[in-house]
């Protein structure tokens, strides 16, 4: 299968195999007016299998969201057909507005317009806790 190189755009590499559809949806890539290619189960020396997403346009990405969902992703920014910048994502220290606290006793379940906020408490086990009630966040995709 041949998917051409992009001139200006973004390549999300080293996506955990099978996660590209979720990332495509969460990042709202379906709403873009440019070429978007999604490659699933590509061979990877490092990972065995991986997914790749190519976006034919340089867009603003929420690295916090991306890092939370799949911290192993590499973000390559391509300009004039060349690698302009490469970012290796890490788990963000703080995640806001992405996940909801499931504790019915938490103030975030009822306080008007309160932004959901979680902090990374255990990087090794990828555990996030609600800043308000300390409840553990629902498991993340690549946990």
């Amino acid at each position: 299968m041949i998917i051409g190189q992009i001139k200006d755009g973004i390549v999300l590499d080293h996506i955990t195999a099978g996660k590209s559809i979720e990332i495509y949806e969460i990042l709202g890539l379906g709403k873009l007016d440019c070429t978007v290619a999604m490659i699933q189960n590509a061979d990877s020396a490092k990972m065995g299998k991986k997914d790749i997403i190519k976006v034919g346009k340089v867009i603003d990405l929420d690295f916090t969201v991306l890092g939370y969902i799949d911290p192993g992703i590499t973000v390559n920014v391509i300009r004039d057909g060349k690698l302009f910048k490469r970012e290796h994502l890490t788990l963000p220290e703080k995640v806001t507005g992405i996940i909801r606290c499931r504790n019915p006793r938490c103030v975030s379940s009822c306080e008007q317009e309160l932004v959901q906020e979680f902090r990374l408490t255990d990087p090794e086990k990828k555990i996030y806790r609600c800043v308000y009630c300390d409840s553990e966040a629902p498991s993340i995709i690549n946990k």
């Binding site: 006793r105 938490c106 103030v107 975030s108 609600c130 800043v131 308000y132 009630c133 300390d134």
Partner: peptide, 10 residues
């Protein structure tokens, strides 16, 4: 004092 956890932080 509040029955909701995290209310004083808010």
């Amino acid at each position: 004092r509040h029955p909701k956890e995290g209310a004083p932080l808010v």
